[in-house]
């Protein structure tokens, strides 16, 4: 589903954030991405979401070489990749429903048609009753679940999460991972960057470890 071939990402100011990274994530696979802060986890996820482009190497998602995608095809690609962030990135002046509906609006769906889809996504993360609440009135865990609902509402085949539980206590973190597990079970490919080594250990999924931009380990047991 996701294929990195000798991918390097260099920032002019900082040098290489990713160095010669190669791996393949199969369709429907769920994997964790770990490593110290600054190891390049966010950079790797941003490359997959085509928020940035690799300096060198080849990167393809669902068989599509991202280097071959022009400016006009980027939006389409992003609709097929759901992204979740540590800081949620919700719009504070829009209620939960409106926040979750953004990907559908981006895909050109008429506002009148998207209610069902948005509520289904909210139902999955257990927030149906909060659809009219503003994100700022929610707890951190609830906000993260809104972010997850937004990532899955358009039913992308790939979900990327960048330290989704970074701010959450262990119980809430487990809840979030439980959600991911359920998406995994319905066939979504997931790549989750996290520091939460304990949780990773209990889950027994594949783990990719980055160290200073290099992929240094690829297993569930490192």
């Amino acid at each position: 589903m996701i294929r990195f071939e000798h991918v390097t990402k260099r920032y002019a100011e900082r040098g290489d954030a990713l160095r010669d990274v190669s791996f393949t994530l199969e369709p429907g696979e769920m994997a964790f991405l770990t490593g110290h802060s600054g190891a390049g986890k966010s950079t790797l996820l941003r490359l997959i979401g085509l928020l940035e482009r690799p300096t060198r190497g080849r990167l393809s998602v669902a068989g599509q070489d991202l280097g071959a995608l022009g400016r006009r095809q980027i939006p389409l690609h992003r609709r097929r990749v759901g992204m979740i962030f540590q800081d949620h990135r919700l719009l504070p002046d829009r209620n939960v429903f409106d926040n979750v509906s953004l990907p559908l609006l981006a895909a050109g769906m008429h506002p009148r048609e998207l209610g069902k889809r948005v509520r289904a996504a909210l139902d999955q993360v257990g927030l149906l009753r909060l659809e009219h609440a503003l994100p700022t009135s929610l707890s951190s865990g609830e906000q993260q679940r809104v972010g997850i609902a937004r990532a899955v509402v358009a039913r992308p085949p790939v979900i990327l999460a960048d330290e989704p539980t970074g701010n959450l206590d262990p119980a809430l973190s487990r809840e979030i991972f439980h959600l991911f597990e359920r998406f995994h079970q319905v066939g979504v490919s997931l790549l989750i960057a996290t520091h939460d080594l304990e949780l990773i250990a209990t889950q027994g999924h594949r783990t990719l470890r980055l160290h200073q931009g290099r992929l240094v380990a690829d297993s569930g047991n490192w």
Binding site: E26, P27, G28, R117, R119, A120, A121, L122, D123, Q124, V152, V153, R155, P156, P157, R182, F183, H184, Q185, V186, G187, V188
Partner: peptide, 28 residues
């Protein structure tokens, strides 16, 4: 569990059961 291969021997019924319960998420 890949969505594009519904012919998978085990995942087929399981996935449909899941998606039946969660109509909101179906990447297939």
């Amino acid at each position: 569990r890949q969505p594009s291969s519904p012919s998978g021997p085990k995942a087929g019924p399981k996935a449909s059961q899941k998606s039946g319960r969660q109509p909101g998420h179906n990447p297939a």
